[in-house]
């Protein structure tokens, strides 16, 4: 599919099929299949070209597992995934996927300037004997501009704040022009206003790049700020529509509004995100505007 196809009308785009199709996907980890509890069970969903899909669900609900399946890191035990018509492995090899992991996994002691970091996806495509050209530099600058981090270009990567780092890593993820951007819990530890700004930045990237975005989060505010459509996941798909359809009943069903589960849930948060008090603004009790979709 060439670049011009990106700019076809909506109808034509619909006809060309979804960006991502997940068809009847089930997954069990080697240990969990013994207990008969799959992490994902017959999940079917489509992500339209150029849309922002938010995958919402409690910790342990299978969101990250689904993301790893989209990345091709895990293989579904049943069902099929297609990314622009090809398997996740082929999509990854074809550099069609940009990815930002949940935590900053980058080695920040690296003596790299921000610009060098954003250039990496472009540099690895160059033969070893060729210098990095002006086109690559211009593209890296444009990506930094898009995420509002142009002024950081000459800074050391290790000297950035958490928010700056995230923007730079998104610029890096989109530098080589992937067609899908997968973000795993991108706003953990960011306040509601920060999440709104993050959503705006993501919208700019989506609009300018024509890229399809999938955001995985257990925080309702993140999903509301970053998504056109929402998929609620707790082992099976509970909801798949615009955020306006997210009623308290749906959320109760997904997050299981009972004390025992919530205790387990907050315990998971403390374990996964290092929240000493266990609270990380997730679940229906968070007061993050259950009915409030993006404006």
């Amino acid at each position: 599919m060439d670049a011009s196809t990106h700019q076809t009308s909506n109808t034509q785009t619909e006809n060309a099929g979804p960006a991502i199709s997940v068809d009847g996907v089930s997954f069990s980890y080697a240990g969990s299949s013994m207990t008969g509890e799959p992490v994902l069970e017959r999940v079917t969903l489509d992500v339209r070209r150029g849309e922002r899909l938010g995958i919402l669900g409690p910790n342990g609900g299978g969101k990250s597992t689904l993301l790893k399946i989209l990345l091709g890191v895990l293989k579904p035990t049943e069902g099929r995934v297609r990314i622009f018509g090809v398997s996740p492995d082929e999509a990854r090899r074809g550099r069609m996927i940009g990815y930002l992991p949940q935590r900053v996994t980058a080695e920040l002691r690296f003596p790299l300037r921000v610009m060098d970091t954003v250039l990496q996806p472009l540099a690895v495509r160059q033969p070893a004997w060729k210098r990095i050209g002006g086109t690559a530099l211009a593209r890296a600058s444009a990506c930094l501009e898009m995420v509002g981090a142009r002024r950081l270009a000459e800074k050391q990567i290790g000297s950035l704040s958490g928010g700056q780092m995230q923007r730079v890593l998104i610029a890096r993820a989109i530098a080589a022009g992937p067609r899908v951007l997968l973000l795993d819990e991108p706003t953990v530890g960011i306040d509601v206003e920060g999440q709104r700004r993050f959503g705006e930045m993501l919208d700019t990237v989506r609009t300018e790049e024509g890229i399809t975005v999938v955001v995985v989060s257990h925080e309702l505010a993140t999903i509301a700020a970053t998504s056109d459509r929402v998929a609620c996941l707790r082992r099976t798909l509970h909801f798949h529509d615009t955020p306006r359809g997210l009623t308290p009943d749906v959320l109760r069903e997904v997050f299981r509004h009972d004390l025992a589960v919530l205790e387990g849930h907050t315990h998971d948060c403390a374990h996964e995100h290092g929240h000493a008090d266990g609270g990380c603004g997730c679940g229906p009790d968070s007061g993050l505007g259950v009915d409030g979709g993006p404006a």
Binding site: R92, I97, Q120, P121, L169
Partner: peptide
């Protein structure tokens, strides 16, 4: 620099 995202860069 970042092993987790290296795969997505091919």
């Amino acid at each position: 620099f970042d092993e987790a995202t290296a795969g997505s860069l091919g």
